[in-house]
Design a protein around this nucleic acid. Structure first.
Lengths: 217, 217
DNA sequence: CTGCATTTTGACCAAGTAGTCAAGTTTTGA
DNA sequence: TCAAAACTTGACTACTTGGTCAAAATGCAG
């Protein structure tokens, strides 16, 4: 199975066919929707197969185990999710860099809430599938960025603030709008769907956090 | 079943026996642990029964459906979880009231993370069991408290800030330490278990939020 | 066209799980 | 002490669901 190592296969990665590329994509998209809505245990292969428009055995032909689909979706999305943090520029203006970061995270929560919920669910349940990633790659990345923030504080470009807690606060606040969407909607009602709502949210969040860490003069 | 309406039954609520009181408590405690760790679908009645130290049919004798246990745990915990918000005093000093509120919420996240995770999971999955509660009781409570904060802003006791987003930010940030505990631990490592960690967290969170909304002079 | 590799699926199996039941054991109030 | 009520449980059923399998359909290089 899956050994199409024959002469010309265009621009596809070694050992994958055209149909494989298409169907894996379809499956992963369907799986993100389903897993983010119901969690790992709460989702069924049948559900994903139905959403992907194919039979269950066919889906299992591409991903032999439910776990495989789940882990693949998770990993695929993780990279994208962390990219904005990586983009924080040590040479930039601290307040401006953080404003940019918060804005980007809020936009991601708005545009891809399923991705946020997928992680939230995974971490909420103890992160069994990505605990190595958290302790390795993620920790390293956060340590780096925390060091940058600490330097900014030392240079008096920010009020004294614990960089880790600042990062946690930004994550918590921005992802709240994706993860707790139904609660936000229950409380704010139709406002949420009004044009300009997201800008207003960004404005409020940014104003509190940035005023909270701007050096006082 | 459950019709012990006989003369003297002490201080127990009408129609419950001594053993019922004891066992319902045991079951609900076990259920909170299990549901918060694995979610509704991910938890089994057998698991809860095992943790409660009784047979499955016995557990089902007290709560005939899995749903019943879940909803009861959820409702029981909701009241407790919202109480600190209710305690915000319109007559108090704004900054002091909010400091008290944040401190209390952080303490709850530390002491009863399972309760926080139970809600987080429920809301993350669309709050099927409590959407009425969210749109009714919770919305009303939040509207009231938002009005108080708005008044504080009008009286220039706080910087201009959207009260709803402020409340969301406080919820998100404080509950993050319970809901995303494994992530926090992965990044901060052993620090989390060091004495004083929670005080340091409170200090950081309070400092950012309160500086962010204190009127500038 | 053709034959081999890839893809697709209906039918099936085994494990896990919510909930039932009837028969036993314990508690309780008089 | 004792009978009725309350409580407890082993064994069982019905159903869901992850995963298998063998055979059919389709795609594709020469």
């Amino acid at each position: 199975m899956a050994t199409a190592v024959k002469g010309k296969n265009g621009e596809r990665p070694e050992g994958t066919t055209r149909i494989q590329g298409i169907n894996r994509r379809i499956i992963l998209d369907a799986a993100l929707e389903v897993f983010s809505a119901y969690g790992f245990r709460g989702s069924t292969i049948d559900q994903i197969a139905a959403k992907a428009g194919m039979s269950k055995p066919n889906l299992l032909y591409y991903f032999p185990r439910k776990q495989n689909i789940y882990v693949t979706v998770l990993e695929d999305t993780l990279e994208e999710w962390l990219r904005p943090l990586d983009d924080i520029d040590p040479a930039g203006d601290p307040v401006e860099e953080l404003r940019k970061y918060i804005t980007l995270k809020l936009k991601m929560s708005e545009e891809r809430p399923e991705a946020s919920r997928l992680f939230a669910n995974e971490i909420l349940h103890g992160a069994p599938a990505i605990s190595d990633f958290l302790k390795g790659h993620l920790k390293k990345l956060v340590d780096e960025k925390a060091a940058i923030i600490r330097r900014w504080v030392d240079e008096k470009k920010l009020s004294p603030v614990d960089p880790y807690h600042l990062i946690f606060m930004i994550w918590a606040t921005t992802q709240h709008y994706a993860d707790f969407d139904v609660q936000v909607r229950a409380i704010l009602g139709s406002q949420v769907s009004r044009p300009g709502f997201h800008e207003q949210t960004a404005q409020a969040v940014i104003s509190i956090i940035l005023n909270g860490i701007k050096p006082r003069d």
